[in-house]
Design a protein around this nucleic acid. Structure first.
Length: 351
DNA sequence: AATCCGTGGAC
DNA sequence: TGTCCAAGGAT
């Protein structure tokens, strides 16, 4: 990209978006924008939070369930914590769900159910950082906010052939993204950048041959697009080990515990177990004839690999969740794997 | 500033 | 199988 080409590149991007925009459940298309229709801030907010570090394909089902069950922010604000966490199960990064609920309650109770309309106002809400605030303001209100996510970092780093590695290059890339942000249709511009990054300017094997920005792209001209953006090497993931205990009573009830609000899988349901580390202790929650499941659960979190030995037993006691109140789908994925592994060791109650 | 925080799909 | 990585935010 040469100085002075920003406006032409922006126009080329919007022209491409007008014919190639993805159709998404939370999106109002460019043709509808022409009639003055704007996206619903509640739905934009919901989708943006779900999409943080998460693929469109993974978000679609959860977005549909959330917006069907809680159509307005007041509905979500009135929901029980456990119901929201259960619906979020499987999406990961569970602090997002806790902050989603906090944010809904602030908007409902302190803003009369209306989201702030500026990026500055949005930024003050729980779970809304620089990216999400800018995205909502641009998409829902056409504020010319500079929207910088992973897609934008990639597109911009290639347009200007920025070879400084991330995250160090973050500030420079934000500055360059600002040069590209137009005063006209900034919301469509932001969504166009993301669509371009998702479908053409992809991390691997970018489709430069059909890219509307190719005439402006320094990395494409130099043949180095697929090597940008550079990133600092990541730390190796250690392996941690642990035990998990699945107890069922005679009525088919299940022994579950609510995990602490903070930390890994915070606020989610799980099975009792040991700590996770190099040498975990065998500490079942009650005395019973514990039998080990034949398969070990393997699961990878953001910063470590986990191997869990699963033990199952029939037992009686207080605090079991009734069979009718338990759905494996309400568990975080690692706990759903534990449940699946336990079934072969719990012959009287196969599920 | 660096670390923590999930998951599933692509390759 | 293992590695990368996707519309980041909080602390």
């Amino acid at each position: 990209m040469r100085d002075g080409d920003e406006a032409a590149a922006g126009e080329a991007l919007l022209a491409w978006y007008d014919r190639a925009a993805r159709v998404l459940p939370w999106r109002v298309g460019p043709a509808d924008h022409a009639t003055g229709e704007r996206a619903d801030p509640y739905r934009v907010w919901m989708s943006e939070v779900m999409l943080q570090q998460t693929t469109v394909a993974a978000v679609k089902d959860h977005f549909h369930r959330f917006t069907t069950r809680w159509p307005r922010v007041e509905d979500l604000a009135a929901a029980e914590d456990g119901a929201v966490m259960a619906e979020w199960a499987g999406l990961g990064y569970y602090a997002r769900a806790r902050n989603l609920l906090k944010c809904a309650r602030v908007v409902a109770h302190e803003h009369s159910g209306v989201f702030p309309t500026t990026s500055e106002g949005l930024r003050a809400l729980p779970g809304i950082g620089p990216y999400t605030a800018a995205a909502i303001a641009a998409i829902a209100h056409d504020e010319p906010a500079v929207v910088v996510d992973g897609n934008v970092e990639r597109v911009v780093s290639r347009l200007w052939a920025v070879e400084t590695p991330l995250p160090g290059a973050k500030a420079a890339l934000t500055d360059l993204a600002g040069r590209l942000t137009p005063a006209r249709r900034p919301g469509d511009h932001a969504q166009a950048m993301m669509d371009l990054g998702a479908t053409i300017c992809t991390p691997r094997n970018p489709a430069c041959a059909i890219c509307p920005l190719r005439p402006f792209c320094a990395a494409s001209a130099q043949g180095i697009a697929d090597s940008l953006p550079r990133k600092a090497p990541k730390a190796e993931k250690p392996v941690r080990q642990g035990f998990a205990f699945v107890a069922r009573d005679g009525a088919g009830g299940v022994l579950l515990e609510r995990r602490p609000e903070k930390g890994l899988l915070g606020g989610m349901l799980g099975f009792p177990g040991s700590g996770w580390g190099p040498a975990p202790e065998f500490t079942p929650p009650l005395a019973a004839d514990w039998r080990e499941a034949p398969s070990t659960v393997r699961h990878t979190f953001t910063h470590f690999h986990l191997r869990l030995r699963v033990f199952a037993a029939q037992a009686e006691g207080a605090g079991f969740t009734p069979r009718a109140d338990f759905r494996p789908a309400a568990l975080p994925t690692v706990m759903r794997k534990v449940w699946d592994a336990a079934q072969s060791a719990l012959s009287p109650h196969p599920e």
